[in-house]
Every structure is written in structure tokens, then in C-alpha cells.
Amino acid sequence: MRTAFALFLLASLLPAQTADFGKAWSFDERKPQTRIEQTIDAVLPSVVKIHGASGLATISAYATGVIVSDRGHILTLDQIMIQKGKTRVVLYDGSVHDALLLPEEPKLGLRLLKIDPAQVHGELRPLWPPAEQDAGFRTGQFVVSIGNAFRLAEFSEKVSATFGVVVGRANTALRYRLADVKYDGDVILTDACNNPGHYGGGLFTLDGRWIGLNLRLLDSKETNTMLSAAIPTRDLLPYLEQHVLGERREQTVVTKVPAWTGVVLFEQAGRQSPPAYVERVIAGSPAAQLGLRPDDLIVRIDDWSIRTCREFRDVLARYAAGQTVKLVWKRGTKIVDGELVLAEEPK
């Protein structure tokens, strides 16, 4: 009954709105003048609203996506709301399309959707393929972030644009609550705000280059702050190439053997994990070959800052036997580093 009523409402609205199809509302009255206005005007048609499954009050049933091919491929963040048969894409002109779900990219937390290009009036304006060298970004670069924050845009209303600056790059040493995001690489930090619904939208430079896909608002354990971030576009390329262009990349399946260093840390039980002081080093182990000694304080593995014994274990779990890491440790007041070849734990 309710559905029928909603359909009736929608149908009654349609004639009134049709006249505005294809126009950017913001610039109805005058042409875009500044670079910011021009960029927004240029990229808005490539950003779409995504409506998905709802049910739980905590799940917002809306998101944003970007068009990545003229054959109807749309890239967004993989979220619970994106469910087979329940995902619809609203284009720039307000037209609604059922979306097919393509295989997700679990490592990046991305999902490609596909709409039927035959159903689209006019042509789709994909953002992709961006040239690899064009996807670069720098700290202090001004950016425009486009997305449907809080589902403020309905139907053919245009999604929101926010303005900000590239705050910086966060490397893998950034620790956020894991439930937030699957992506584990470098992210672009920005102060152009990400809000629910904005996720999956695009981040653009002032000259209209697409540099990132908006992530969920990150909850940084490192600083107790919320961070607006985006996955750099260049990291999306392998996934897009495989599923949009059909270029299958060689997937090398590696069976991971746990890494072993031969270091025994001074670790006590307790709520707070102590700093990673070496208690002893097993003879003949990689750590012994590197010259680690009791009372050394391990402070870094590659770019990972090691502040506690727990972090030492967690970070080491990301590596496999046979890999080489740069280990930094403190002996007395001296900082020493060296290459450690991780080994397999002897039986």
C-alpha cells in the first residue's frame, strides 16, 4: 500500500521535474566562472546517487558512486546496503536504473555496479580512465569533494560539493578502527568533509582531475580524531582494468608462512602491553644474525611504529617468511637499524 502511495507521489512529481533534466541546478542562472565552479560543473554528471537495501536504523541506505565507463560501470564502496536486486542508481538527470552487482574487490572494499547503458538517455560521462600520472596529488592541493551527503539530493537534484585541501597522506602506520574500512594502503586525507552518503563519491583537484574515491569517515585510534579520507585513484586501477576492460591481471596466490624473527620480547600479562624490549634472542635466528641483543628496544618495522609488544606481533603478522624488513631498534641512546630477513620458525 505504502509502495503504491510512494509510486503515486513519484509519478505526480515527474512531469514537474522533467523540464530540468540535464541541467546543473547550481548554474542555471549563470555560467560557472571560477575554477571551482567549472570543476564542479564538469564532474557532477559523472557522479551518481546509489540507493540500496535498508532495514537497520544504523545503516544508511544511500551512497554515492562514480561512472567509470560508457558501458554503465559505476564504482562505489562496498557496503551492506548494496544488495543484489535492491540496488538502484540515480543518474544526474534523475533517471533511476537497476544495478547489477559485479564482483567486489575485498582488499580495497570496493564494488562495481553495472547499469544498462541502453536505458540511459544521452551519454554516460565516465571519469575513467584517468592517466596514471594524472592521478597524483600533493599536500596542500585544493580539492572539491562530490557526494550525496545525508541523502540531501533526491531524484534529479544535484549531489553536494564540498571544498577543502589535501591535508596529507596517511601511510599504513595510520591505525583506524578496523571495522571502519577494509582498505589498508595509503589514503588521501582531506578536510573536505566526508559524511554518511558521501561515501563512494569522488575527490577532484581544482583542474578537474579525479584523484580519489571517498572513504567512510575514519576513526583514527592514533589521534582520537575523525578523518575524511579517500582511496587514491591510482590504487583503483588494477581492479578497474580487470572488471571494466576485462584485462585479467596475473593473480599470484602465495601461501603465507608466518614470519619468525627469533626475538623473545619482555612481555608481561596485563591490560597495557609494554614497549617491545628484547628479553632474549634465539641463537642462529634472523635477529641473532642481525645482532639484536637483550634490552634493545624495537621501535619500528618498515614504516610501522612499534610502541608495544602487541603491535610488534600484529605488524609481524602482516609479513611472511622470506620477506625482508627494515628493523629499527634503540640500544642505550643509540638508534640502530638493519635489514632483517624473516624466516620460518624451526620445528
Binding site: T139, V165, V167, G168, R169, N171, A173, L174, D186, T223
Partner: peptide, 10 residues
């Protein structure tokens, strides 16, 4: 704070 090779800016 976030990256060693590049500062962040606000």
C-alpha cells in the same frame, strides 16, 4: 603524525 615523509597541513 600520519606520514614520515610529508607533513600534513590544515
Amino acid at each position: 603524525t600520519f606520514a614520515a615523509d610529508e607533513p600534513t597541513v590544515h
